[in-house]
Every structure is written in structure tokens, then in C-alpha cells.
Amino acid sequence: MAKTIAPGTPRLPWSTRLDKFQRRYAPYIFISPFFLLFAVFGLFPIVFSLYLSLQAWNPVQGLGTMRYIGLENYVWLMDDPWFWRSITNTLWIAIASGVPQHVLAIPLAFALSRGIRRFRHPLTAAYFLPYITSAVAVSLVFLTIFGTQFGILNQTLQYLATAPWSAWLFGGLADALPINWLGRAPNIKPAISILVVWQYFGFNVVLYAAGLATIPKDYYEAAEIDGANGRQAFFNITLPLLRPMIFFAVSLTIIGNLQLFDQPFILTDGTGGSSQAGMTVVMYLYRTGFNWLEMGTAAAIAWLLVLLIGVLTMIHFRFFGRSGLETRD
């Protein structure tokens, strides 16, 4: 549809046209780098993996060998014992490593902000350090700590179980030692959870410390005048006013813990461990795609995981979201 310019209509000078053009389009050009990069590295993989989840594809045969099979990957997974085992594992580890993170982080942040203020910053930094350390490096260290014969954890427990001053508390462990942390199915998930708690609770301490900083001092002063002790102040002032932050931090934990990969991967040497007790959904996805070359099924696992995260986050929003925000009034 070419517009013909009527003869005689004076053409605007090019500088004016350029000015009009740039006024109109410059904003788009300025924000385009993000959208271009997002399209290539964000949107395309998302759409492609959805497409892939409907295909049977062995990657080493090249892109041309994809075969459309509809929902078969999803149907197959619904009936796959290993897939369900990986879901159970993931939920188990998510809860066992998620709950302690917050139960530890909130009182600690409270103590840091009110009690030991002098060392607040160095201590916060120390707690935060594991979070910014590579998960792989941390896992390798824990691999040594969890060693059965020579691991420091078992050595410590051994000492505690036999030393006279601690035997009354740890003596019961003596028969169970040495614990095969990473070799026996019942121990693998707790071992992974210990590592995850250690690595991520510092991040929550920082979040909660920031949340605590927003609570006005007046409340505490008023409570003190009314004769409330520290415990009452914590449960009746801090905790309720911290609820929006708790809601936010728990959301992050849900999303993060359901995508756990590095730690279980290193601790179980990439296998998932005895009885796949440590195989998380993302690990199963990786193994299906890259070890067993079923890329279509792997993509379907990814989408089922998205669904799971979506549902759980929604439940979390439904039950805690509104009440979390209401307390703001």
C-alpha cells in the first residue's frame, strides 16, 4: 500500500522528519536491547522447550530428527515411577531444608538487630558468605565432611558419643556410627537438606534484617513501658510486622528449593544416590535429557515442574498472601 505523495505537497525538511522519527521511536530503540536479549535468551528457549515437550527427539541425531508425538511425553511421565520419586524427593528436601532456614533466620535476625548490635555487620556478612559461594565448591567440601570413615561430621559425632561430658546426650548414637551419610537412602535427603539450610539461611537472615529495620522503634519502646519482656516483644510486635517479609522470603524459598540441582548432583556423584533418594526433579530432567538423550521427555519434565511451582506458589499466595499484606494497615 504505497502512499503516493500528491504533487505539490512540500516535503518536510529531513531534519524535521528525523526529529519526528526519533521522538516517536527513540524510546523503543532505547529499551530494545533488553527485549532483543530477552527474546533470544529468555522467550525463545521457553517457547522452544514447550514445542520440544511434544516431540520425541534424540539430540545427537541432529535437529532434523524430531518427531511430533503430541502429549505422549506427559502421559508417559504420569506413569513413570522415577518421575514420582523425584517429585517426592524434591518436596521432602524443600520442606526439610526450607522450614529450618526461616525458623533459624528470624530469631537470628532479631538477635542481630536488637541484642548484639556491635557485631551486627560482620556477623551478617559471615552468615551471608555461604550464599554467594559457588554451590559446587560448597558441595565438594560437604562431600568430604559427610565422608563415612574419615568425614569430620562422623568424627565429631564419634567424639561426642564417647567423650564423658557429652555421652549422656549423644551416647545413643554410638551404635549407629559411623553413619553412611551419602550411601544409604534414608540419610541422603537429610544430608542434602543440612547443606541447603547452611547455604541459604544467611540469605534469609539478610532479608529479615532488612525487614526488621523497617519496624519503627516506637512500638518496642511503648511495649517496654507497658512492661513487655523481649519474648513478648518478639511474638507480638516483630513477628506480625515481619509477615510481609516472611511471605516474600518463603515464596523465594519455595521457588528456589523446588529447583535444587547442584547440591544433590555433587553429593550423589550425579547419580541421585541409593534408590535415587537424592534425585530431585531438575536432576531427573538433566539426566533424562543429557544422559539418556530423551530431550522431549526432559522438556516435558521441565513444564510439569513449572506447573508444580505455579500451583504451590498459588497455594502459598492464597493462604498467606492476603493476610501477609493486611497486617500492613
Partner: peptide, 18 residues
């Protein structure tokens, strides 16, 4: 072979460890 080996390893550890 790859996946069969994996399944065998897993069955064997269940026999030995569990």
C-alpha cells in the same frame, strides 16, 4: 545400554544398601 546400566545400578544399591 546407558539407561539399563543406570537402572541396574539403582536396583543393585537397593539390594545392597536397603
Amino acid at each position: 545400554d546407558m539407561v539399563a546400566q543406570e537402572i541396574w545400578n539403582s536396583a543393585l544399591t537397593e539390594v545392597l544398601n536397603e
